[in-house]
Write a protein that binds this DNA or RNA. Structure first.
Lengths: 126, 126
DNA sequence: CTCTTGTTTCGATGACCGTCGATATTCGAC
DNA sequence: GTCGAATATCGACGGTCATCGAAACAAGAG
């Protein structure tokens, strides 16, 4: 079941931003919470450096392998990453650039708004 | 302990981003953690809508006054907001645009302020 | 089928976080 | 100085989160 890439096209932190309804507040804070851990930022940063990345490559971040899988699940449910492909028992993850850019847009920086608007459909589920 | 003055001018989530040292990972995740709560996003959003804002105006967010003060302290220590001025017992807070912009830049957003202001003008059209 | 490897899930534990009431502090008014 | 209002801090409680070891699951090799 895919429930990712549903990002409201709203700013929250830019000057002159309109007040947000509670639904958007929770949606935004939930996505920021997915980045509120150094291990998860490291995972996202590693994925941002290359096209895709095997889980086994992420196991030298100082935490155990189940912990890495736990963080991958959180990032996956936040819509920031997704499974690129599976080759045998190897699982390759990749970044979801639209989700990251939507967060940047909410913070007031919109490099290319068309990408954000292209993926903004509704609110997130859980 | 104040250590928030070091805002690294690096991206972490944009395609092709270089690997970050542990210090930057913790710095970034700490700032994202400051936005990982709907009440704090609401505060930042309220401050983004106007130039400055009195604490008493933030007390209709559904939480008690000590809770608002607690969240203000977290946002202040994260460098996202600052005290604009004090008039009597009233305290006015304001956003720190550079800090928010630095976060947007870390996510791969626009590094230039004029673009940020440009998005607030009305290009949110959908 | 059995074995091995890679990944996810489960259960438990310790730490952290959001929230509140009570209290302290600061400032202006009188 | 004394009083009252606005804000900040303290202490405690309940809930959530990060982490781990153990176990379950999946997929290929022999």
């Amino acid at each position: 079941m895919k429930k990712i890439a549903t990002i409201p096209a709203v700013t929250c932190c830019a000057p002159g931003a309109p007040p947000l309804p509670r639904r958007d507040l929770e949606s935004l804070s939930a996505r920021f919470k997915a980045l509120a851990d150094p291990t998860r930022v490291a995972i996202v940063n590693c994925l941002a450096g290359r096209d895709e990345c095997c889980v086994c490559e992420l196991q030298n971040l100082g935490v155990s392998q189940p912990t890495v899988s736990h963080h991958l699940k959180i990032l996956r449910e936040a819509g920031l990453i997704e499974v690129a492909r599976k080759r045998g028992t190897w699982v390759y993850y990749r970044l979801v650039p639209e989700a990251v850019e939507a967060l940047a847009f909410a913070l007031g920086g919109a490099p290319r708004p068309e990408l954000v608007l292209g993926t903004a459909a509704g609110s997130v589920a859980r």
